[in-house]
Simulated scan of single mutants.
Amino acid sequence: MMRASIKPVLILLASIMMYPGFAHAFPDKPIHIIVPFAPGGVTDLVSRIVAQGMSDELSQDIIVENKPGASGSLGTNYVAKSKPDGHTLLMGNISTLAINAATFKNLGYDPKLSFSPVAMIAKQPLLIGIKKDLDINSVEALIELAKKDPGKLNYGAPGSSNQLATEAFSQATSIKMNHVPYGGSGPALIDLAAGHIDVMIETFSSIYPFVQQEKIKGLAVTSAERSNLAPHLPTLKELGFPDVEVTSWQGIVAPAGTPEDVIEKLNRAVIKSLSSQNIETQLTSKGLQPSPSSPEEFKHYIAEEEKRWVNLAQEIGLDPK
C-alpha cells in the first residue's frame, strides 16, 4: 500500500524536474574561455585578468585555455562548433573576429553568424616604432625617408592585423615599405631592437616596454587620443592622418544559439568585473582601456570592423590565403 502511494509522487516529482523552469541554473559547471593564441600575448593576458573577476561574480571556476594556430582560427573554430550553453567562450580580438575574414579564404566560421556576442572587454592603440639607429625622430621624417627611396624600409608584421594596419598607414601617407612576416610579436620586436628590420606597428602593451628601455624609438600612437602611459607620443590624427585610427581590441563571444538569458548573465558578469578597481588598474597599467559594452553594441562593432578591414584588403590588393 505504501509502495503504491509513493509511485505517483515520484512520477510527479520527475515530471516537475523535467520542466524547463527547474533546469540547472547557469553556470552549473566550470566555464572555459578559449584563447586562440599562445600564452603570454595580449589576448591571453586580458583573458586571465578578466576571468578572475567573472569567476567571482558567477561563483564558478573559469578556466583559461590556449588553443593557438592558424592566426587564431583553430581555437575560434573550436568555440564556433562547441555546445551553445555558455560554458565554452572565446576571447576574440581584432584578428579573429574581423581581419581574418579579409585575409583567409576558408575560415571555417563567420565572425557575424557563428557567434553570439557577449561584451567588449578592452581596447588599446598600436604604436609606430622604428629601430633606434634610424636617424629620424618623427612620423614626418619617416614618411620623408620612405618617399626618398621607395621599398627600401622593411617593416615587421607578426600577424594579419599588424600587416593591414601598416598597409593602411602606408596607403594614407603614400609610401611603400617591404613586408617581413613573423610568426609572433616577440621575434619581430627582438629583430627591431637589434636593427634587423626598420619599422613595426605593434600593440602598445607589447612594444612600449622596448621604447621605455630605449631599445626602440616610439614615434606615434594610432588611437584617437594620446595614451596616458605615453602622453609625449602624438596621435596620427594630430599629425593629419585621421583615416589611420586603428585600435586593437578584445571581447568575449559565445557559440551562436546560446540562450539570451545566459548571454545577459555573462554580460553582467563582464561589466561588474570591469568595474572593479583592481581589474581596471591591471588593464590600464598595460596600456589597455576597459571598454565594456552590451551584446548588441559589440555585435555592431564586430560587423563594422569586419567591413572596414575587408574593404581595405581589397583596396590594397591583398589576396586571401
Rank of each mutant, 00 (worst) to 15 (best):
M2E: 14
I6F: 12
I11F: 07
S15M: 13
M18Y: 07
F22H: 13
A25L: 15
D28S: 14
D28A: 12
P30R: 05
H32D: 02
I33Y: 07
G40F: 14
V42E: 00
T43E: 11
D44S: 07
S47V: 10
V50H: 03
Q52H: 03
Q52Y: 02
G53Y: 01
G53P: 00
M54F: 07
M54V: 06
S55A: 14
E57H: 04
S59V: 08
Q60N: 06
V64I: 12
P68M: 04
T76K: 11
N77H: 05
K81N: 13
S82P: 08
S82I: 10
P84R: 09
D85E: 08
G86Q: 11
T88R: 09
L89S: 03
M91D: 04
N93F: 10
I94M: 02
S95Y: 15
S95K: 11
A102V: 02
F104A: 00
F104T: 00
K105F: 06
K105N: 09
K105Y: 04
D110P: 06
D110G: 04
L113I: 00
L113E: 04
S116E: 10
I121C: 11
K123C: 01
Q124V: 01
Q124S: 01
P125Y: 07
G129N: 06
D133P: 02
L134P: 09
L134I: 14
L134H: 08
D135Q: 14
D135C: 03
V139Y: 01
E140N: 09
E140K: 09
L142G: 02
E144G: 03
A146G: 08
K147L: 10
K148T: 10
P150Q: 12
G156Q: 05
A157H: 12
P158L: 09
N162Q: 13
F169V: 06
S170V: 12
Q171A: 15
T173C: 10
P181E: 13
G183S: 06
G184N: 04
I190G: 02
A194W: 08
I197G: 01
M200A: 11
S205E: 04
S205V: 08
E214S: 15
L219H: 05
L219F: 11
T222M: 07
T222A: 03
T222N: 03
A224C: 09
R226M: 11
R226S: 10
N228I: 13
N228F: 13
A230N: 07
A230L: 08
H232K: 12
K237Y: 08
F241S: 00
P242F: 05
E245W: 07
G251A: 04
V253F: 05
P255D: 12
A256M: 11
A256R: 12
D261W: 01
A269G: 02
K272V: 05
K272T: 04
S275A: 06
I279D: 03
E280R: 12
L283S: 04
T284L: 05
Q289A: 02
P290Y: 04
P292G: 03
E297H: 07
K299Q: 14
K299E: 13
Y301G: 06
I302M: 10
I302E: 09
I302W: 07
A303S: 15
E304I: 15
E305D: 14
E306Y: 12
R308E: 13
R308F: 15
R308N: 12
L312T: 14
L318G: 02
L318M: 12
D319S: 14
K321W: 12
